[in-house]
């Protein structure tokens, strides 16, 4: 049995749990608790330990999807969950006021992991923001010496999340043929 792992992390309310839900082949196992601090203004409940989903590729191969809690006080979970993962999907809420700080915080937290593995960045909730400042985002990545795919995504949209994961895989190995498309319309 071959087992692999992909991590979903990012800011509170960015859509990590939703993203896992839309691509998981199983009912997602969540550890939601009622929000008690400033998060309460954003949403009723929040992830406190992890979200867990799974992609079953065949009888012998499984990709486990783990979502980290967004709040920094649970950051001890981030490193634990990231151990042995293939890559990191980082979701950033771009309707928030401190996008740069958020990106820097997560890139710093996963610095060692990113050095050895791949990362893709999904910018969510762009419909609620006044526009994405791509210049600032790429400058922030450059300051962290990171060249990663950055896409605008809707965490509820399966196509968007699939493309993020595809980009993650292809940024590890771009030579894999990605043209398989058996349906002709």
């Amino acid at each position: 049995m071959q087992q692999y792992k992909i991590i979903f992390s990012g800011s509170v309310g960015a859509g990590k749990s939703t993203a896992i839900k839309v691509i998981s082949d199983i009912e997602v196992v969540a550890t939601e608790a009622r929000a008690s601090d400033h998060i309460q203004k954003m949403k009723e409940s929040t992830t406190v330990a992890m979200d867990y989903g799974r992609i079953n590729l065949d009888a012998e191969t499984t990709v486990h999807l783990y979502g980290t809690p967004g709040q920094e006080r649970f950051s001890f979970m981030w490193e634990i969950l990231a151990q042995g993962a293939l890559g990191l999907v980082l979701l950033i809420d771009c309707s928030a006021t401190a996008i740069k700080t958020d990106i820097n915080r997560y890139l710093a937290a996963f610095k060692d992991f990113i050095k050895e593995n791949a990362v893709v960045i999904g910018l969510t909730r762009s419909d609620l923001s006044t526009g994405i400042d791509w210049e600032m985002i790429y400058d922030t990545l450059a300051e962290n010496d990171i060249s990663a795919p950055v896409f605008e995504v809707d965490a509820r949209n399966k196509t968007d999340i699939n493309m993020l994961v595809e980009a993650l895989v292809l940024s590890i190995d771009p030579t894999i043929d990605s043209t398989i498309n058996p349906v002709v319309t």
Binding site: V63, V169, I176
Partner: peptide, 18 residues
């Protein structure tokens, strides 16, 4: 090419079909 290329191919196929 990466050691896990057969896994990546399977995963890409899965995502494309989804």
């Amino acid at each position: 090419t990466h050691n896990n290329s057969s896994l990546f191919k399977k995963l890409l196929n899965h995502l494309k079909r989804a």
